[in-house]
Design a protein around this nucleic acid. Sequence first.
DNA 1: AAGTGGTCTAGACCACGAA
DNA 2: TCGTGGTCTAGACCACTTA
Lengths: 245, 245
Amino acid sequence: MTAKIPRYLIVYNALKKQIEADQYQTGDRLPPEPELEKKYNVSRTTVRKAVELLAGEGFVHIKQGRGTEVLDFKTTQKLQYVTSFSETLRGQGFTVSQRVLSVETVKPPGKISEMLSVSESEMVVKISRLTLANEVPIAVMTNYLFWEMVPDIEEKAPTMQSLYQLLESEYNIFIDSATDYISAANSDRNTAGLLKVEEGTPILVVRRISYRGGEPIEFADLQIIAERYEYSVHTKERPPKELNF
Amino acid sequence: MTAKIPRYLIVYNALKKQIEADQYQTGDRLPPEPELEKKYNVSRTTVRKAVELLAGEGFVHIKQGRGTEVLDFKTTQKLQYVTSFSETLRGQGFTVSQRVLSVETVKPPGKISEMLSVSESEMVVKISRLTLANEVPIAVMTNYLFWEMVPDIEEKAPTMQSLYQLLESEYNIFIDSATDYISAANSDRNTAGLLKVEEGTPILVVRRISYRGGEPIEFADLQIIAERYEYSVHTKERPPKELNF
DNA sequence: AAGTGGTCTAGACCACGAA
DNA sequence: TCGTGGTCTAGACCACTTA
């Protein structure tokens, strides 16, 4: 059985492959839409959907009346998608390992129950981990999950390498969006001890709420050694203009 | 003369207005596409474009075979678009003021010329500002712009309230994407003095490169008092699946 | 004026989810 | 099975950019 692949994705991938293979110089234009229709034997709608996908990812810039310009994808490709902290580190070439410090079922602390909008009577699973990049401590991570969603996670958590991968493979939970709140602090004694740095070392604090279809799934608290990690985010475009009747 | 407004935007705004007016309970479904076609007397393509816009902004969640679910927009509306630091603060209800500390034309420091990919012989304009929220210092901001793009900005900068607004109104430069690199540090003596905090106070460091159509326009360095500001970002969806031929 | 992308239609068939 | 959204077509007209 062969997977059914939409034709717009085929066109999208063909064009993307050409761009990544440097078949266009930066500043060159993609063939106009009528040409792409003929070349791939699809309708205009399909061509446009493919090109709009590329534009959304920063590969090209579409301009009415002018054409579709190919951008320098090497400088434009940033992480604007949901990935876990450990996946990001791996993508940067580090060998990442996790040491699970504790797995407990607890009543949600006030702040957590508020952010996950869960009553304080519903139990949550709290997982604390030390993240090491190339064997060197880089962050202390604490995750809170709904106990009902992840039965038996206490047994699986100690050996996992990525929480998101575990959620996908074992519980069929696919995170599709997340909000990060980023601030900074000086490390307290406890955190500094775990990270093996001096008390007062600058810490990047990331609190993340993950969602699936608009429903909160997980709350995470990361305390990252600022000198060893940089958070990057790419944002694009302003919202569509409002109407003024 | 009346502005020509696309029909999909009319449908989009009508639906958005209904959602914001709480005409749907969280979890309710939007009318199915065929109904929306009749109601607004447009084709299916137009309905879909409107609904996809809403989904992209987190107002609804589209699921094949199930329907289009209305989400709680109050908790979903985050800043995933390009806005300036001062615009964000104003959006949070602060009265924001800027004190321009200096405006100079300089040769780009090595790091800047590298990040903006500009030769060190091309001059850049360096603007340093102190940002105050409700009259209290909150950040020191340094912007670097191509001198050729912003002639006479030395005269205009001292009175501006938002750099992005100045770029748009005076130079017709519209930023459409940006990448932020976020880290943390302890304030040094100079920064601490400007911000009127103790040396060593945690600082959130944001370095931003702004683009227009893939071309770098501006580099910014923000040193923000961590206790007074939280950076938030909403990310969504993973990239389309790759094809494996 | 010519060529590019932007909007829109009417209709078809497919794939997923719930009853 | 039925109703939902997902993909796709062929063709039309509009709006912007450039020459």
